[in-house]
Design a protein around this nucleic acid. Structure first.
Length: 423
RNA sequence: CGGGACUUAGCUCAGCCUGGUAGAGCGCUUGCUUUGGGAGCAAGAUGUCGUAGGUUCGAAUCCUAUAGUCCCGACCA
């Protein structure tokens, strides 16, 4: 891809209405564009990051036996009335069709998934299983905030598991909890903790929130050096650790995921039954597991960025390699830049080439905003030495080579990419 | 949903108090000079001044209504 053709507008100067560093960089770098209050269009750049995060999520969900499905954004009001949540969930957006039929925009999909599973589940022999989707949610919140951190429409991974016993649910719930840590680590989050939380309108018993500890977070997390953690709601007024009795530390947290043990709340209210081994009809025990994809993306930028732009890792960077060619009257730099670009494209490596006839400073500033982990600088100065200069955006890569040979760059680049993926 | 602020060029804003027919910087187009961290000079294009009413000879400017956006708070499966 040529940077001049990239359908992304990077901006100079002040970004009005952006209050956090990450939000500013998302707008400045052209990752997102606000379409309405709480609703964003993802540019090719933003959507690449989003899809990379989703790929990691899919791999980890599949690894614990998840089966991907796709449910509709809209559903009839009937299933929400059946579950009893139609008048209870105030973020539920309701509307009517021309015929007067009542619809909802699903803010979460317990009702829809139970309706689906009713069409599938007959016997205890089919359980346990988990289905998940990555799809758009709409929640009619009164206010959005900080770009993708808090929106009204957003991409979400929501997973639902079905079990014959509470013990089986708990075992799977812990598996899922571990999978969540793997996901957050792979997409480059550093300071993530899980805290016990209140189930609220979701019902059920145990639930955990995954919090990225960060000053811009909207939630308060209490953390004890002994390892105990809880969110403010579940602790009430107490600020003393119930485990060791020491005072708890306050942290702000961004809630990037949550998992719930739902029990039989939905399977019972919506009459989802299976035939047990003894021939009796029973309601499955359910768990549900959510991750906000856009919020995860915003959180990574908040946590890992410098003043010039986001710092992506190899898993989620929109482009892995960013080639900058410098002014060169002989045309040799552009020629080699194009060769490297074509080689990487053929290798299925996401690469972007900046061969614009503009000053170096603007190219570097743009490269910082795109945040590719590997930057190759092709210039007359470097060509004289027979080298391609390499710069790394991610601090973990700084020990890697600072240059590659021009002759045989293919092999050297392959090795470098392999090394980067390992770190 | 309570409190506060805002809406003028693609973006960031000035102009409004004191009414007289639209401005700057950035971006964009063209040319020349530049070219290792957002360059310089010159020329050029771009607006129903959020929308609808009202006052007035005349409204971006004053009045009313309405829509949208932002911030703080509350809310948040």
């Amino acid at each position: 891809m040529l940077i001049s053709n990239l359908c992304v507008k990077r901006k100079f100067g002040t970004v009005a209405d952006a209050t956090t560093k990450g939000h500013k960089l998302c707008v400045k770098g052209g990752y997102i564009h606000q379409t309405f209050q709480g609703g964003y269009t993802l540019s090719p750049l933003g959507y690449k990051v989003c899809r990379n995060i989703e790929r990691v999520i899919r791999e980890e969900m599949d690894a614990i036996g998840g089966q991907e499905i796709l449910m509709p954004v809209v559903s009839g009001a009937d299933i929400w009335k059946e579950s009893g949540r139609y008048d209870k969930v105030d973020v539920l957006a309701k509307f009517k069709g021309r015929s007067g039929a009542e619809y909802v925009l699903n803010p979460t999909h317990e009702e829809v998934v139970v309706d689906f599973v009713k069409s599938v589940l007959d016997s205890y022999k089919q359980m346990p299983f988990m289905v998940y989707q990555i799809q758009t949610k709409f929640r009619d919140e009164l206010r959005s905030r900080a770009g993708l951190v808090r929106t009204r429409e957003f991409r979400m991974k929501d997973a639902y598991s079905f079990h014959t016993t509470q013990e089986d649910l708990e075992q799977y719930y812990n598996q899922c909890l571990q999978a969540y840590y793997r996901i957050f680590k792979r997409i480059g989050m550093k300071n993530v903790v899980d805290v016990k939380s209140d189930n609220g309108d979701m019902g059920g018993s145990i639930s955990h929130e995954f919090m990225l500890l960060h000053p811009i977070g909207e939630d308060t997390v209490y953390v004890c050096p002994c390892g105990f953690r809880a969110n403010k709601e579940t602790m009430g007024e107490s600020k003393i650790c119930p485990v060791c009795g020491k005072p708890l530390e306050d942290h702000r947290g961004i809630e990037i995921g949550n998992i719930f043990q739902l029990g039989d709340k939905y399977s019972k209210s919506m009459h989802l039954e299976y035939t047990a081994q003894d021939g009796s009809k029973k309601n499955p025990i359910m768990g549900c597991y959510g991750i906000g994809v856009g919020r995860a993306m915003a959180s990574v930028i908040e946590e890992s960025a410098d003043d010039n732009g986001p710092i992506w890792n190899m898993e989620i960077a929109p482009y892995k390699v960013h080639i900058v060619t410098m002014a060169d009257k002989s045309g040799e730099s552009d020629k080699l830049g194009q060769q490297i670009h074509d080689y990487l494209t053929a290798q299925n490596v996401e690469v972007i080439l900046d061969n614009r006839d503009i000053r170096a400073g603007e190219k570097f500033a743009d490269a910082d905003l795109l945040g590719a982990p590997i930057r190759l600088i092709v210039s007359p100065k470097n060509l004289e030495k027979g080298e391609i200069e390499v710069k790394y955006r991610h601090p973990n890569y700084q020990s890697l080579p600072a240059s590659l040979p021009v002759s045989g760059f293919e092999q050297a680049l392959n090795n470098l990419l392999a090394d980067c993926r390992k770190i």
